[in-house]
Design a protein around this nucleic acid. Structure first.
Lengths: 67, 67
DNA sequence: CAATAAAGTCAAGTGAACTTTACAAAAAAT
DNA sequence: ATTTTTTGTAAAGTTCACTTGACTTTATTG
């Protein structure tokens, strides 16, 4: 699943560690999500949406790649 | 996490089994989510939103209960 | 260049999302 | 009232979200 976390972080000049702290998860979790290694849980997606004042759909993109 | 699945099902006169089939999960998964036993994964939440033509936020409610 | 901070990654562990199988309880239909 | 459908629930197993700890690689900065 694609996501805009890296851009949203950059806009605020936040490190992965700072975002992790704001979302109360580990830095490795943020890194893994940004790198697409796994999807966040729904509660974590909600928490990120609240943090950035956006909808989940604004941040995460579930669409399937067209070949 | 609260959700409107039961109502959305009722509006369409669908059984849990029918919704499960549409979302490609087991009937027990739908039952457990409706009963609040666990939260859906983010991909499943997206799939439900697409199915009902709603946003994730329209269907699922992450807000904390005020005591 | 050297030092430090940030990002990337790996391994091992825990817990939760989801499965199948199975059965009981409740609701609907005949 | 009996049958059939739907819902609820439980146990056991698999996979994945997430953790901690440790280490390497890439940026940043003095």
């Amino acid at each position: 699943m694609k996501n805009r976390l890296k851009v949203l972080r950059a806009e605020r000049d936040w490190t992965q560690a700072q975002l992790a702290s704001a979302l109360e998860v580990s830095r490795q979790t943020i890194n893994a999500i940004e790198k697409g290694k796994f999807d966040p849980s729904l509660p974590l997606a909600f928490k990120a949406a609240r943090l950035f004042n956006l909808t989940i759909e604004d941040i995460f993109d579930d669409e399937v790649e067209t070949t």
